[in-house]
């Protein structure tokens, strides 16, 4: 009695999987072999390596600073987040 109900899940799962794989193969043929970031750059119209290469002064998003690729800024932001976590940890006695 429970046979068809038990089979319903796997049938639906593999049907969806087959459709998705077919769609992915078609999309892959359209885009060609690209990495994750290359594919995003192509989709959004950014030149590879970011638009910072075009304007020559880094992509700062209007903030005046460019965090991407700056190890010191990454370290500062990470330390800030770690300190904030410690403060919350002690404040709420987690």
């Amino acid at each position: 009695m429970s046979g068809p109900i038990e089979k319903r899940g796997p049938i639906l799962f593999f049907l969806i999987a087959a459709i998705l794989i077919a769609a992915a193969i078609l999309a892959f043929q359209a885009t060609g072999p690209q990495g994750i970031e290359e594919r995003f750059h192509a989709a959004t119209g950014l030149s590879h390596g970011g638009h910072e290469e075009e304007d020559g002064h880094g992509g700062d998003g209007g903030t005046g600073i460019a965090v991407e690729g700056d190890l010191v800024l990454y370290a500062i932001v990470l330390c800030g987040l770690a300190l904030a976590c410690m403060a919350l940890y002690y404040h709420y006695r987690i």
Binding site: I36, F40, L46, G50, H51, E52, G59, D60, A66
Partner: peptide, 10 residues
């Protein structure tokens, strides 16, 4: 979203 800082406006 695999975009760098600066892709979106502030």
């Amino acid at each position: 979203i695999h975009l760098e800082d600066g892709a979106f406006s502030l």
